[in-house]
Design a protein around this nucleic acid. Structure first.
Lengths: 155, 155
DNA sequence: CACGGACCGTTGAAAATGTCAATTATTTGT
DNA sequence: ACAAATAATTGACATTTTCAACGGTCCGTG
């Protein structure tokens, strides 16, 4: 054994060998930051951001979520959901329908224009996602999604 | 084949079967949101947040990063790094040393108090991380980290 | 050597997001 | 019928993000 302690990689990216780089929270945060930036850039041409895209996706998917469900699913404050839907509704992409089963609640549905825009936006989003996953083998795509699901939806 | 279209899970969590739930960006965002909240809660007792913890970690690890390196590594604006370091420096956890090789740049080093606090904070952070990974098998921990690294550090 | 252009950290302002408490309308349980 | 709980909304406030401008320093070229 050499008596010398840690050999310090003096190169470009010494930081990548720090303890932090093994930290799951950090890796998640950084991966998320890059992904989010790429997604927002790609969605901009459709006048969307990741947030509004998510809301539109759920509306277009005929899930008929209430605003509360949206808030919890997207981890947003209910008041942010209000603003988000206001924006989409003003553009006629989405409509609030009062839930017949509970007149306090609104259920979100997409208009035809909303569905059309979502279809276009989705293909942009998919393209970006494939680009980000370039270094990951196809079978690992699903593995990654599975593992993330465990973190994203703890029982 | 049944002529009926999509069978709609009418249960608690129909949203989890939506197209969005297969979206990597969404899973990353949600996993990150939960993880970040848990980390912040655990770090609060040490007067830290995920951000300041990350900075302290790099300082304590003797990586001697410049502020610019910190900004890029943590995906922050350089001005945010200034504020972050100001906070830690005021608490004497960290010091700015002007880089002898480039007097424009500051290099960040941890004080003894900073190292001590980091050691304590790190064990809180690890405990939280293990809790979040409860549903993931130990060998998948590393697999997940590997996959996230590919996203977090595209060559 | 001197100069211009690039780069580092810092400041400050503006925009976007996040957090929270209060309000109205409705539901639910008793 | 009533009290407590819940859905959406509003408005206030804090935190975070984003950006442009500035002084000090470095580097390459003339």
């Amino acid at each position: 054994m050499s008596p010398i302690g840690k050999t310090r990689p003096t190169g470009r990216d010494r930081l990548r060998d720090s303890v932090l780089a093994g930290d799951l929270s950090f890796l998640l945060a950084r991966a998320n930051a890059l992904t989010l930036a790429a997604a927002n850039a790609a969605l901009a041409e459709h006048g969307l951001k990741a947030r509004s895209y998510s809301v539109l996706a759920l509306a277009a998917d005929d899930v008929r979520p209430t605003q509360r469900e949206l808030a919890e699913f997207l981890r947003l404050d209910p008041s942010q959901v209000v603003a988000l839907i206001d924006g989409l509704e003003k553009r006629q992409l989405v409509e609030r329908r009062t839930d017949p089963a509970d007149r306090r609640a609104n259920v979100l549905v997409a208009t035809d224009a909303g569905r059309a825009l979502f279809a276009r936006a989705q293909s942009s989003a998919r393209a970006v996602e494939l680009g980000l996953l370039a270094a990951v083998t196809p079978e690992d795509h699903e593995r990654l999604a599975e593992l993330l699901r465990l973190l994203a939806f703890p029982e």
